[in-house]
Each structure stands twice: as C-alpha cells, then as structure tokens.
C-alpha cells in the first residue's frame, strides 16, 4: 500500500536554535584528509537583497570521493570525524560560512565521474519547499565533463560555480530568483 507523502512547509523566520547551532559549520576537524577550504554561501532574494533569516545545509563526499553513508559501498577510505554534513543560518549580510575539505569525485550512474561538488539545501521564510542546488569549484578541470552541468543550459551554469576571493575563500551567491536566478535541482 502506498502512503501519501507529508507535504513540505516553510522553515519560517523563528527556527529554533537547536536546529542551527547544534551542528558545526566546521565539518573537518584536525586530521581529516584533504585540501582544507572555506566556503561562503550568500543568499539573495529575487530583487538581489540579502536574506538574513535563511538556513544553508551542505552534504558532500570526503576528499577521496566517498560519502559517509551505507549506500556508498566503494572501496575508498572513510575519514574518522568527517560525516560531510553542515548547517548554518545566514548572518545579517546573508552569508553562511563553512570550513570543510574539497570533496573528491563521485561516480555518475551512466558511467564516468562527476566534478567535485557540494550538495546544498536552502531554507528560509517564504521558501515553501527545500531548494536544492550544487556548488562546483571554478577552474576545476573536471567541470567540462560534468554530467550534471551538461543538463543545465550553458548560460546558467555559472550560477553553480563558486569563485575564489583574494583570501582563497570559495564564494557562491545563491539567488532565489531574479535575473541571476540560481539553478535549482529537482532531486
């Protein structure tokens, strides 16, 4: 028998502290293998104004390209202390900052590998369904062959590609709408 799905609702503006503060935005404690990176996501509304009451969540593979999950049965190392999940509310300037490691490449069902990416969920007041997108890394040679980017019209691919600032931090603006609307995925 099929059970009917529970519908989604907005996170609202008053999400309780436990749902944000309980999880560190630092995913990679000392000793976790890989290139340590800082990622800053910045949330904008359709007019470009920053969204100070949103929540970002990230989910990613470790530096070897392995997800810490029973569904990933490949013979690649798991790193103690690295689950690959982070959550942070946005500050008054619309940003959330994560410290993590650059993920390795993970396979594509039809064959080949995907370019390194971080899976991103967005929640906010006024957002009725979880919005899912991806963060890719500018300049990565694997971008050109990434099967997901190929599903996106070329003119919009840039909305998924983080760029490095002068300090080496990876920055990705997320636009809920407007002329620079981010590509969101039906996952």
């Amino acid at each position: 028998m099929s059970h009917a799905l529970t519908p989604s609702q907005t996170i609202g503006p008053f999400y309780w502290g436990t749902i944000v503060n309980a999880y560190h935005a630092d995913l990679a404690p000392t000793g976790v293998a890989g290139e340590r990176i800082e990622v800053v996501l910045k949330l904008h509304d359709v007019d470009g104004a920053v969204v100070p009451d949103g929540v970002f969540e990230i989910w990613q593979a470790n530096s070897h390209g392995r997800y810490n999950h029973p569904e990933d049965r490949r013979n690649l190392p798991l790193d103690a202390g690295f689950e690959g999940y982070g959550r942070a509310g946005t500050f008054t300037d619309g940003t959330s900052r994560f410290t993590t490691v650059k993920p390795g490449r993970v396979p594509w069902p039809a064959g080949g590998l995907q370019a390194p990416h971080i899976n991103v969920s967005i929640f906010a007041r006024g957002v009725l369904n979880r919005l899912a997108t991806r963060l890719y890394f500018d300049g990565d040679p694997a971008l050109a062959e990434d099967p997901v980017l190929k599903l996106v019209e070329p003119g919009r691919r840039d909305t998924l590609i983080a760029k490095r600032d002068g300090n080496g931090t990876w920055l990705l603006p997320i636009h809920l709408g407007g002329p620079n609307e981010t590509v969101f995925f039906d996952v």
């Binding site: 907005t10 509304d45 359709v46 007019d47 104004a49 969204v51 989910w59 593979a61 997800y67 810490n68 999950h69 569904e71 990933d72 689950e83 690959g84 999940y85 993970v106 396979p107 594509w108 069902p109 039809a110 995907q114 990416h117 899976n119 906010a124 007041r125 006024g126 957002v127 009725l128 919005l131 899912a132 991806r134 997901v148 599903l151 996106v152 809920l176 709408g177 609307e181 981010t182 590509v183 969101f184 995925f185 039906d186 996952v187």
Partner: peptide
C-alpha cells in the same frame, strides 16, 4: 503567502537523475 513573491524561483527546477550525491545523506547517528 506574501514572502514567497520575493523568495521563489520562477524557472523550473532541473530534474536530476539519482547519483550517489542524491541517494546518500547525513544520518547524524553520532
């Protein structure tokens, strides 16, 4: 619900086939 006007995408979401990125997720078992 007025807040949706300024905060909702107008373009269709791109349907993703399910790879490991979508079928794995945090267990938060720890």
């Amino acid at each position: 619900y007025k807040s949706t006007v300024g905060r909702s995408p107008r373009k269709s979401a791109v349907v993703l086939p399910h790879s490991l990125s979508e079928i794995t997720g945090p267990s938060l078992a720890n």
